[in-house]
Amino acid sequence: MTDAYSPNVEMLRITDLHAFYGESHILHGIDLSVNRGEVVTLLGRNGAGRTTTLKAILGLTGRRTGSVMMNGRETIAMPPHRIARLGIGYCPEERGIFASLTAEENLLLPPAVGSGGMSLDAIYAMFPNLAERRASQGTRLSGGEQQMLAMARILRTGARLLLLDEITEGLAPVIKQALGQVIRALREKGLTIVLVEQNFRFAAPLADRHYVVEHGRIVERVDKNELSSRMSTLHELLGV
């Protein structure tokens, strides 16, 4: 199987990525790489450039320069929909549930971007709440349900790389726990995940590697096995 855990096959490589919103220069040369089947987090303070990094991968910022290679293909000049079609699923921080669509229409909205996406039944088995609320207006769902929906929506598409932005923000502990289990299940399926996370305690046990973003640059890279020895550095950088 090509999508099993293969830590030596590079899926995403970002080199010297700069991104702008109008005149403001947000990313100042991001360098990072993610291998197939890995879970990687972007840590950092608010405004450090973590969300912008995810958006810049998809071409959702203004001008961007540098290089973003997806499975060996340069995407820096591609429009967002073509980048997504290379097999990327994006779950935005604000969740992006559409009010004019029912929950199920939201779920079925994104087109397939790869093979082997989860079936509707499998998704409803993973998120039973969504099955119950399939006919409700998307934004009538609770915050937790909307988060599940935003995740479920990209699992259907066969995306192999998931960009997840602050998925636990503002959610009850029991839902955070459930999301942690979902991430573990996805990782076992061989999906590659880039997680932007404020909640270090949530991210730490899930990730293979952590990048710390500050002022639009990667300032620290910490692998899972160095975590305990470098805790003090992280504390200092993140103020946790």
Binding site: L60, A84, G96, S100, L109, P110, P111, T157
Partner: peptide, 11 residues
């Protein structure tokens, strides 16, 4: 509602 996100989903 949100053309940027729709495009980011591959449309």
């Amino acid at each position: 509602e949100n053309p940027k996100l729709v495009q980011a989903l591959g449309i």
